[in-house]
Design a protein around this nucleic acid. Structure first.
Length: 456
RNA sequence: GGAGGAAUGGCAGAGUGGUCGAAUGCGGCAGUCUUGAAAACUGUUGAGGGUCACACCUCCGGGGGUUCGAAUCCCUCUUCCUCCGCCA
């Protein structure tokens, strides 16, 4: 059932990357944007075409942006000219006072009144135009990479790789939530008591196995050159905007209103924001971070048959990898991340497949995403356990994460991230695929981390 | 939580109403010298907007105000430091 497909699917020609930007552009109010305005100006039609893959018609949005952009620049110019004039007058007044010509100075003063008024009006106008422009820009998702297949739903995702053997289980094989109860390693009801649904309590060997997985993942990532970071689990609003969770996914994050902080939905947010407002040297690349954090998701509106057990939780653990790359190298880096995650799943001997997400399923901020899914035998279904994405300049633009190119110019870097891995579904996969009559066997690579080789 | 002090360019650190986008030092980059390196010397070196390119505009923790004019004065928020209290 699982045969290897060609590896060549990951060999993407960097020249094929769309919107590989040559110039940066930031609006005068120093706020961040999403797709770069400069790019929209230069490649309007390409962007609209690319966004069609997401099944959205962005033409009115894009046209609105361009219109406001033009208006903004015109207003800015008028304001600049007004300010230039009053600056000049002020200097003259200063000189006159210095040379004792107070009378002449006072005469000049009278001329400044209208200039002041004009610049105030223009400033307000500029402010509201910029704000409107900003809110339009925030509504445009990233342009998909050209390799992204068209499509609406997860049905249209493209399976590009499959590997591993599905174990032959006894006919009375149990799903993980039954196993969790049988061996008393995860208690969902206890979690309901102290918090609510979706907050399981891990017990004994279950807790130990989870900790073993975290350590194992972190060690593997460190081996591959990722620097381990421990980061806050609450982030401020600016961080949420930086990586694109805000304003798009406002309702999906837990918001601590008393302090206006958000519980992180993924380590991606604090880790990528470590580099917000930074200007790197080219020699800093590649930047590779890994972090273990709990992740908190409200999962508003997602109820139904597939949320049992560990399949969908409000709090879960995840080890994340984040990379910041030179634009020319980011797709190479994406390949490397995919290979890295493959290596971990091979070690764990879990059957898995890789999907290239279609336009309709692609995350708002991503240009290209590969999902990893583990086959959960007892449930007879695929479970998403990793998502590896290249955001190109989309996040960097919001983060103002730049580097100096060989000409000394600031350019936006590319950001990428991926799970390596999301714990609960890996755990579910292990419990279900490794169950035997004697108990649940522990994958060999985890035994040293667990200190036991079977849960019975 | 209470009382004080502070926030300036990559870093350190001047500047208390006018030609200050900001002295000076360190660091970085380029050059001279050198077989090479170091040292020394010379030049250069913040981020954005705007323009074909200039001009020009904005930014001295954030926001607001006073003034013809603000890094400098006032208000406010945030952060950091010192002392006291409390505490894992």
């Amino acid at each position: 059932m699982f045969e290897n497909h060609s590896k060549s699917v990951f060999n993407i020609d960097p020249k094929s990357i769309p919107f590989n930007l040559k110039k940066t552009y930031f609006c005068s109010l120093n706020k961040t944007e999403m797709l770069q305005l400069q790019t929209i100006r230069e490649k309007k039609d390409e962007i609209i075409t690319a966004l069609k893959k997401r099944n959205i018609d962005a033409s009115s949005l894009v046209n609105g942006v361009l219109e406001l952009d033009e208006k903004r620049r015109a207003t800015q110019t008028r304001l600049d000219n007004t300010l230039a004039e009053s600056n000049k007058l002020s200097k003259e007044i200063g000189m006159l006072f210095k040379s004792g010509k107070a009378q002449e100075a006072n005469q000049l003063k009278e001329k400044t009144g209208t200039l002041k008024e004009t610049s105030k009006t223009l400033g307000e106008e500029l402010g509201s135009i910029s704000e409107a422009l900003q809110s339009l820009l925030y509504q445009i998702p990233n342009a998909p990479h050209e390799s992204v297949p068209a499509g609406n739903t997860e049905e249209d995702n493209e399976e590009i790789f499959k590997e591993g053997d599905v174990p032959e289980l006894a006919t009375d094989a149990l799903p993980h939530w039954e196993l969790a109860k049988k061996y008393d390693i995860i208690d969902f009801e206890l979690g309901v008591k102290i918090t609510g649904a979706g907050f399981p309590v891990y017990k004994g060997k279950g807790a130990r196995l989870q900790r073993a997985l975290i350590s194992y993942f972190l060690d593997k990532n460190a081996e591959a050159g990722y620097t381990e970071m421990q980061v806050p689990h609450l982030v401020n609003e600016a961080s949420g905007y930086g990586t694109g969770q805000l304003p798009d996914k406002e309702g999906q994050m837990y918001h601590v209103t008393a302090d206006d902080l958000y519980l992180i939905p993924t380590a991606e947010v604090p880790v990528t924001n470590l580099l917000r407002d930074e200007i790197l040297a080219e020699s800093d690349f590649p930047i590779q971070y890994t972090a273990y954090t709990p992740c908190f998701r409200r999962e508003a509106g997602s109820y139904g048959a597939h949320v049992r057990g560990l399949n969908r939780l409000h709090q879960f653990d995840k080890v994340e990898i984040v990379r910041v790359e030179h634009p020319d190298k980011s797709y190479e880096a994406l390949d490397a991340m995919v290979e890295h995650v493959k290596g971990i799943l091979r070690d764990l001997k879990l059957p898995y497949r890789i999907l290239r997400l279609c336009g309709g399923d692609l995350g708002f901020t991503s240009a290209l995403t590969y999902d990893f899914e583990v086959f959960s035998t007892a449930q007879d279904r695929w479970l998403e356990i990793s998502s590896v994405s290249n955001f190109e300049t989309y996040q960097a633009n919001r983060l103002k994460l730049r580097y100096k190119d060989e000409n000394g110019k600031s350019q936006l870097a590319h950001t990428l991230n991926g799970s390596s891995l999301a714990l609960p579904r890996v755990l579910a996969g292990i419990l279900e695929n490794y169950q035997t009559a004697e108990g649940i066997k522990i994958p060999e690579v985890l035994v040293p981390y667990c200190g036991f080789d079977i849960i019975d």
